[in-house]
Write a protein that binds this DNA or RNA. Sequence first.
DNA 1: CAAATAGTGTCTCTAAGACAATATCAC
DNA 2: GTGATATTGTCTTAGAGACACTATTTG
Lengths: 271, 271
Amino acid sequence: MESEKEFLSNYNIKDYERPSLTTDVAAFMISTEDKTSDRKDPDNKLRLLLIKRGGHPYKGCWALPGGFLQSNETVEECALREIQEETNVMPTALLPVGTFSKPGRDPRGWIISNAYVSIITEESVKQVAMDDADDAQWFIVSFEQSDDGLYHLTLEYDDVSLKAVLSEEKTSYRRTEFRIIESGGLAFDHASIIAMALTVLRHEAKKFDAIFDFLPEKFTLTALQRVQETIMNVTVLPGNFRRMIGSYVEETDEYVKGERHRPAKLYTRKK
Amino acid sequence: MESEKEFLSNYNIKDYERPSLTTDVAAFMISTEDKTSDRKDPDNKLRLLLIKRGGHPYKGCWALPGGFLQSNETVEECALREIQEETNVMPTALLPVGTFSKPGRDPRGWIISNAYVSIITEESVKQVAMDDADDAQWFIVSFEQSDDGLYHLTLEYDDVSLKAVLSEEKTSYRRTEFRIIESGGLAFDHASIIAMALTVLRHEAKKFDAIFDFLPEKFTLTALQRVQETIMNVTVLPGNFRRMIGSYVEETDEYVKGERHRPAKLYTRKK
DNA sequence: CAAATAGTGTCTCTAAGACAATATCAC
DNA sequence: GTGATATTGTCTTAGAGACACTATTTG
């Protein structure tokens, strides 16, 4: 009878056909736009990092950052490594989106992707200068459902505008996935991945869960409210937001002064 | 300049080192135990399908059903195929649990697993006779947190009892995962996968989302309530359950008669 | 009629939305 | 003072938990 040790020494894993495994990361950031007036608060924009592909396939198209999994790391570590290689910044959050494995999704062959949402603070992005002629850019994100039920994903930066159209499909097991009707110049099935990533992000934001990761350690409640409103694409009454967020935050004794209005107290995330 | 077509014809995907990809499925079922009294309603038990490993590694240990991904299928299709090969039954639901990729998790080498929850109705299981001497068995599941914060996973069938102990770990990115302290005779990292699967299942059940998949097309509200109570390990007042579930179900004009009490109306899932 | 489940109504408490009122700063 | 945001409080409504009560069946 063969022992486990003997079995493993005889076992050759290369006997089976294997796929390549990649990680794609939807890295989000919220930017505070330049003030239009010196009295009003600035607008916030949700932004997504895209890379212009320099090689085939989908040469010239924009794609999510990502890369092949290495054998000494987990998929989460791979996602973090890819984001850091691309931005020189460490994300503050990483959320799983799903596995994309439909045969034919990558013309290079049998390639399966694990998708993640990562969140990066504007603060940290500003510290590393970004070359404007670079092939990595932060696109302003808009994702809305129109009256006919279709979803419209718009990604804009300077004069580049990518418009994808997707339909929400319920699989036979009631999982929702997004079918690409118009990819809008996005590589592979990345329009679908981005739509899923936004769904995950909004789901987390609804529970006040991912919003803290867009801000520094200490923040004002209004800043936090703007983050949630930007992600969810809604507006909330300030009084109600404060009541609801109350159990998630802790006061500090610091204030933001210097603005032309009452100073705001800084808070930190509880626990 | 190389065209995309030329690029692809020169591209050899086998140049990169690749992992093997498997799917592991936590298949759940709720069994109605034999009546102890002829007046009282039967007890319900949450059950999980486990397979006794016939070969190395972990020979003789119990493991989740699963297998290697084929190049012509998605991971979801692979999960469904594996469950059907093992049980001859088609699940009524399939929920993603996550990707398990920690280096060293499988002694055979670089093997990454996508885990799913699948739900099977008791009705369909009863139709295919199960050999009691078989190496596939439905274990009664118990999963509880003790006072010291540890989680205790107990799987029982006849005189077989597997007891695993896990601790809930928050990763640096606030994802919770379960670290195995005592595997209780479960193969690989399957104790951890099962704990995650139960967390996913309970999360869905809380939203009244996965509970319908345990029952046939038509069901009584009390049966539905028992399913939720069994999964969540709580009890609910009947009046409140009916009020809360009201918007998810639709009446039929059929009744269950023959019991020693008022007949119950049959309902179907709305939409 | 006894015992059991099926089903309804109502009280209370809490959480969330709407909205009003007050506070405090820089200029 | 003016105009902006910061912060607090109150009214109302919707939903969830607790609980009491009625309905219907079979043996």
